[in-house]
Amino acid sequence: MALDFGILWQDGNLPLLLQGLWVTIRMTFLALILSCFIGLVIGLGSMSKVKWISGISATYLAWFRGTPLLVQLMLLYYGLAISLHIDFSASVAGVLGLGMYSGAYVSEIVRGAIQSIDRGQMEAGRSLGLSHWQTMFKVILPQAIRRMLPPLANEFIALTKNSSLLSVITVAELMRAANTIVADNYKYFEIYLTIAIFYFVVNFVISTLIKILERKLNVEGVRS
């Protein structure tokens, strides 16, 4: 049988998909900001000399990296609501779930990049009378961020793809929009191919933006 992409222009299917795409972009973007924040805190925490801080960070990483995202989302949205009466809306649970999961991976990116900076940089900062944190924020992190960008591009792309799992906790994002449409018309190939292309374009934009950012940071100084 022939493919029929004309289906996109029927029954308001395309607008529904575009609406889903917009939700996907919004959720992914918010989760991305959350994951950067969590990643920085947990990443710095994991290097702390204070035992309980590094302990919490290690536990966070082990838990969120060691359990499936789908299970985490189920716990967060259905589990908490039904057993503990902590009732998040689907989008809040979605952003939290994605952000906390991805934050674990970002924390390892942060830690790896910071530890790759020569120890002499911290020593030079400290010898000039700067505190540990002043040196961290003025000397170490500006150099480390550049090294984080390539692995962060990977992580953000994974985050975008993982956002399709939010369909199971009723977030009306791209995947769920597609599911709704195919339940009606059985045009699996046409609809799923369309959203695959949408996901691809979003991820292509992310990797391009990060490449531009890398180049910009290069021009501004660090060529080490």
Binding site: D118, G120, Q121, E123, A124, R126, S127, L128, G129, L130, S131, H132, V139, P142, Q143, R146, E220, G221, V222, R223, S224
Partner: peptide, 25 residues
Amino acid sequence: QKNLNKMREKVGMVFQNFNLFPHLS
């Protein structure tokens, strides 16, 4: 640490590998 930082201000140090900050002019 605060007192240590203060003390270190009195002591300048030059390293074998320079340890200049590569991201700054």
